[in-house]
Simulated scan of single mutants.
Amino acid sequence: MPVYDFACACGSRFEMMVPSWSSPAPDCPACGATTARRPPSPAMHGRAAPPPSMASAPQSWEGVGSGDRDTITHWRRTVEARQEFESRHPEHREQRDAIAAHEGRFERRPLTYRELATRAASDGNATRAAAEASRERRTGGAAEPA
């Protein structure tokens, strides 16, 4: 039996299972008057928001309340919900690159392995490439000469 929403002139609103749409509306449980069906609530129309993006997750120890269990549990569940959402809806998958460095000069803009490989492609020297990226972040623009 489907569940329908009903409203009464007295202001009472309630849900009730009835055999079908053509079944008569039940009397109001509050005042006993005749009721009328009302449109279902918006939640019944499938409006939903996706879980927060992975970019909104904390990136530091301080971001998880210095290890607060409740905060860590909340974010673990949030990330798992996002991963499950992305597995069902690949068109919403976010690009996530592995991080090579995230402290010091790289705190605000982490150095990804993709960026490191691109910088080191010419001579294969990852150490030089990381130093170049660090100099660039320190100056806020183009890399300084080595």
Rank of each mutant, 00 (worst) to 15 (best):
residue 24 P to N: 01
residue 144 E to W: 13
residue 85 F to K: 13
residue 82 R to G: 00
residue 32 G to P: 06
residue 31 C to K: 07
residue 25 A to L: 09
residue 91 E to W: 15
residue 137 R to M: 11
residue 31 C to W: 03
residue 106 F to S: 05
residue 54 M to A: 14
residue 146 A to T: 07
residue 98 A to F: 08
residue 40 P to A: 03
residue 90 P to D: 11
residue 104 G to H: 12
residue 21 W to A: 13
residue 59 Q to D: 05
residue 126 A to N: 05
residue 48 A to T: 08
residue 68 D to A: 09
residue 40 P to W: 04
residue 13 R to L: 11
residue 93 R to I: 07
residue 137 R to G: 10
residue 83 Q to A: 09
residue 71 T to D: 03
residue 65 G to Q: 11
residue 61 W to K: 03
residue 64 V to M: 12
residue 2 P to M: 13
residue 115 E to A: 09
residue 3 V to I: 11
residue 39 P to R: 13
residue 107 E to Y: 11
residue 86 E to I: 05
residue 145 P to H: 07
residue 108 R to A: 06
residue 46 G to L: 06
residue 121 A to S: 05
residue 10 C to T: 01
residue 94 E to V: 04
residue 114 R to A: 04
residue 3 V to F: 12
residue 63 G to Q: 04
residue 5 D to E: 14
residue 119 R to Y: 07
residue 90 P to I: 09
residue 61 W to A: 02
residue 145 P to Q: 10
residue 75 W to S: 06
residue 106 F to P: 06
residue 20 S to Y: 09
residue 130 A to R: 11
residue 78 T to W: 07
residue 53 S to K: 14
residue 92 H to E: 15
residue 125 N to G: 04
residue 76 R to V: 00
residue 18 V to S: 08
residue 69 R to S: 06
residue 15 E to F: 15
residue 14 F to V: 01
residue 128 R to C: 00
residue 135 R to G: 05
residue 135 R to T: 00
residue 60 S to I: 02
residue 145 P to N: 07
residue 129 A to V: 05
residue 20 S to M: 07
residue 100 A to C: 11
residue 28 C to V: 01
residue 39 P to F: 08
residue 51 P to V: 02
residue 17 M to H: 13
residue 60 S to R: 13
residue 98 A to Y: 03
residue 143 A to K: 15
residue 64 V to I: 13
residue 12 S to N: 15
residue 48 A to M: 10
residue 4 Y to M: 02
residue 41 S to P: 07
residue 141 G to R: 09
residue 105 R to G: 10
residue 114 R to E: 01
residue 93 R to D: 10
residue 70 D to Q: 09
residue 101 A to M: 14
residue 48 A to R: 10
residue 11 G to M: 04
residue 115 E to S: 06
residue 104 G to W: 15
residue 105 R to W: 14
residue 85 F to S: 08
residue 37 R to K: 06
residue 58 P to Q: 05
residue 115 E to M: 08
residue 8 C to H: 11
residue 95 Q to W: 03
residue 121 A to C: 04
residue 78 T to I: 00
residue 25 A to G: 10
residue 48 A to E: 09
residue 73 T to E: 00
residue 129 A to I: 06
residue 10 C to Y: 06
residue 23 S to G: 02
residue 10 C to L: 03
residue 86 E to G: 01
residue 90 P to R: 06
residue 94 E to C: 07
residue 83 Q to R: 12
residue 25 A to V: 12
residue 122 S to R: 04
residue 10 C to E: 02
residue 1 M to S: 12
residue 75 W to R: 08
residue 141 G to T: 03
residue 109 R to N: 03
residue 114 R to L: 00
residue 144 E to T: 07
residue 60 S to A: 10
residue 81 A to E: 02
residue 4 Y to D: 01
residue 143 A to C: 15
residue 142 A to C: 13
residue 63 G to M: 02
residue 17 M to S: 13
residue 123 D to N: 03
residue 62 E to H: 05
residue 86 E to N: 13
residue 67 G to L: 12
residue 119 R to V: 00
residue 88 R to K: 15
residue 47 R to Q: 10
residue 65 G to M: 10
residue 105 R to M: 10
residue 136 E to F: 03
residue 111 L to E: 03
residue 60 S to M: 08
residue 104 G to E: 14
